[in-house]
Amino acid sequence: MFLGELEKQVLQYLWSSPGVDVKRVHAELAKQRDSSLNTVQSALERLFKKGLLSREKQGHAYLYRAEVARNDLIAKLIDSVASDFVSKGESSLIAAFSSVSTEMDEAQLDRLEQLIEIQRQQLKKGDSSAD
C-alpha cells in the first residue's frame, strides 16, 4: 500500500481530530501546505477507498474518521514493504529493524523489549494449545 504525502498528513490530522469535514481538514492542512479544497477532497476519497477512513453524511457534507489506528497502519505498511523485498524465513527484515533500532533511546528499547516478551508469551500459549 502506498500513501502520498498529503494522505499521510490527512491521516495524522484525523487521528487527533475525528469526525471532521473536508473544509476543516483543508483549513488545518493549509497551515502546512498549499493545497486546494478539491485536492484535499481527492485525498480523503482515496483514503476512504483504501479502507483507511470511514465517513458519515451530515447535511451536505461527509464527516471523516480514521478507520485504522496509527500503530496498525504502521504495521500494515511495514508488512507491505517487507513482503515486497523479503522472502519468508529470510533475516534481512530483522537486520533492517536492528539498524533502525540504533536510533532508539533507552526507554524505547525497554518498551520494545517488553513487546517482544509479550509476543514470546503468546507464541508459547499457541504452542501449548496445539498439543
Rank of each mutant, 00 (worst) to 15 (best):
L3D: 06
L3H: 08
L6T: 08
E7S: 11
Q9Y: 06
V10M: 05
Q12H: 14
Y13R: 04
W15G: 12
W15K: 07
G19H: 03
V20G: 01
V22E: 14
V22D: 14
V25G: 05
R33Y: 14
R33D: 14
S35K: 12
S36G: 12
T39M: 05
T39I: 02
T39G: 03
T39R: 11
V40N: 09
S42N: 10
S42M: 05
A43D: 04
K49W: 07
K49H: 12
L53K: 04
S54V: 12
E56Y: 10
K57A: 11
Y62S: 07
L73N: 07
A75E: 14
L77T: 08
L77F: 05
D79P: 00
S80L: 09
F85E: 00
V86Y: 02
E90S: 15
S91D: 13
S92G: 00
A95G: 01
S99R: 14
A107F: 06
R111Q: 15
R111M: 13
E113D: 11
L115P: 00
I118L: 13
I118D: 09
I118G: 01
R120G: 03
Q122W: 08
Q122V: 05
K125P: 00
D127Q: 09
S128I: 07
S128A: 04
S129G: 00
A130G: 05
D131A: 13
D131T: 11
